[in-house]
């Protein structure tokens, strides 16, 4: 917010206030009453504040460094089987593909990490969408937000995505003067997305003898057993 309109509004309000204070002959009692009332209001809010439960507010699952719930990382680098994340499975699509075929993988609108695992005893190509959403509810937006979907057409496997979820969040800054003499700094807004603990990835079970091609730009990891 720019300073200038605030400045103008302030001058108008103070000027008007002083004018009316003289005009209406508001006495000293009114002044004390106002000061007392405002102080009381602030003290009450302080008491209410004390009742805001810390536990309910600060999530215990709050990701800390080195202790992330990152599915992609766990699966690809730590060898955690994807079954562990069954709770985040959102949808899956099966496609029959002929042996020896080569399929071209593309995404439409948005890119997501894709993990590909080759499976021996399976004839179908299976695409599973895992989605880990923040605990907070996204804002309902008007209009068509689209659907997540996967389509196989003439050897093109295309992943369609819905519009991004939209969140409106508030945050408090605890800067000057509260942290003047302490080391804490409150630049959390730089990492808004880290805090939001959101992840969306596609997992493809790919039958043997099916070739999957994709553009080098895509974020694809092969899972090697």
């Amino acid at each position: 917010m720019s300073v200038i309109p605030i400045f103008i509004i302030l001058i108008v309000i103070i000027g008007g206030f002083l004018f009316f204070q003289n005009r209406w002959n508001l006495g000293r009692k009114f002044g004390y009453f106002l000061l007392g009332g405002y102080t009381l209001f602030l003290v009450i809010t302080f008491v209410v504040y004390l009742f805001i439960p810390v536990d309910a507010f600060l999530d215990e699952d709050f990701p800390e460094d080195g202790e992330t719930k990152d599915m992609f990382h766990s699966v690809v680098y730590n060898g955690v089987p994807i079954k562990e994340f069954a709770e985040f499975e959102k949808a899956s699509w099966d496609f029959n593909v002929a042996e020896g075929e080569s399929i071209w993988l593309t995404t439409e609108y948005y890119d997501f990490p894709v993990i590909i695992e080759r499976v021996d005893d399976q004839e179908e190509l299976k695409v599973t969408l895992y989605e880990m959403l923040p605990d907070v509810e996204p804002v309902e937006l008007f209009g068509d937000q689209g659907e997540d979907g996967v389509v196989l057409q003439s050897n093109n496997l295309t992943i369609y995505s819905r519009e991004p979820y939209y969140y409106e969040l508030g945050q408090f800054e605890k800067e000057f003067p509260f942290t003047r003499f302490t080391a804490e700094r409150a630049e959390i807004y730089m990492h808004a997305l880290d805090i939001l603990n959101f992840e969306k990835l596609y997992y493809i079970h790919l039958p043997e003898h099916v070739e999957l091609l994709y553009s080098p730009d895509m974020y694809v990891e092969w899972l090697r057993n």
């Binding site: 602030l42 809010t45 209410v48 507010f57 508030g170 945050q171 408090f172 959390i188 805090i195």
Partner: peptide, 25 residues
């Protein structure tokens, strides 16, 4: 004290989710 007033007002009366952050306290 007004720092607490803002926190209480936003927490209780503004329909907006808050970052779960230590900076609230």
């Amino acid at each position: 004290l007004s720092a607490f007033a803002i926190r209480v007002i936003i927490f209780h009366f503004v329909n907006e989710d808050l970052f779960r952050s230590y900076t609230f306290f």
